[in-house]
């Protein structure tokens, strides 16, 4: 029944517009325009996530983590852009995505990346300055480093799985 609903939805105007229509004007197809926005969102959330992880691992010590709130905000805006464009892309061919194992690997990786990002964000907010020689440095606990490593790995898996979805099966027939 749910499958029938999805097939009817895919046959409808909105889903067809996402798959085959134009976004505002020709030749900018809705599908590829959404993919473009999806990539910008990915670059922001994953790229900034990786950069902050590098800082947490101990590189770029002059970059104070307590001052990264605006950067984290930008990473989250990147994710919202990803989420919005991703939902619309899913509405273009839901049946194909749902029967593709890599789609679920990607979804699971994204959920895990988001959970670990929230843990990292909370950990950054709790970082304290500790004396080090003549000055002070930000003390990064091991648990925060482990979570930062997991953020990197989960986003990496999500990217690779997302790219490989395009090489799996074609959409099921209407």
């Amino acid at each position: 029944m749910f499958w029938d609903f999805l097939r009817d939805f895919e046959a409808g105007d909105f889903s067809s517009w996402i798959r085959e229509g134009n976004f505002i004007a020709e030749p900018f197809s809705t599908f590829y325009t959404l993919l473009g926005f999806h990539s910008i969102g990915m670059a922001a959330v994953v790229g900034i996530g990786w950069m902050l992880s590098a800082r947490i691992f101990g590189f770029h010590q002059e970059f104070l983590m307590s001052k990264t709130q605006r950067l984290l905000q930008l990473a989250w805006w990147g994710f919202y852009l990803n989420l919005g464009s991703g939902i619309l892309l899913l509405m273009g061919q839901p049946r194909r995505e749902f029967i593709t194992g890599l789609f679920w690997v990607k979804m699971l990786s994204i959920v895990m990346a988001l959970i670990t990002m929230l843990v990292v964000q909370k950990g950054i907010a709790q970082i304290k300055m500790v004396p080090n020689g003549s000055g002070k440095i930000e003390a990064v606990p091991l648990s925060l480093r482990v979570n930062a490593f997991l953020v990197c790995i989960f986003w990496l898996v999500a990217i690779v799985a997302g790219r490989l979805i395009g090489y799996t099966q074609p959409p099921p027939p209407m």
Partner: peptide, 30 residues
Amino acid sequence: LCLLLGSMFIIDLRLMGWFKSISVRAALSF
């Protein structure tokens, strides 16, 4: 592209004045 744009976001936004809480040297270290 995630490595390239992730670091460019930090560097360019700092230079543009959107993310002034860190020094330019710290931003350029990325």
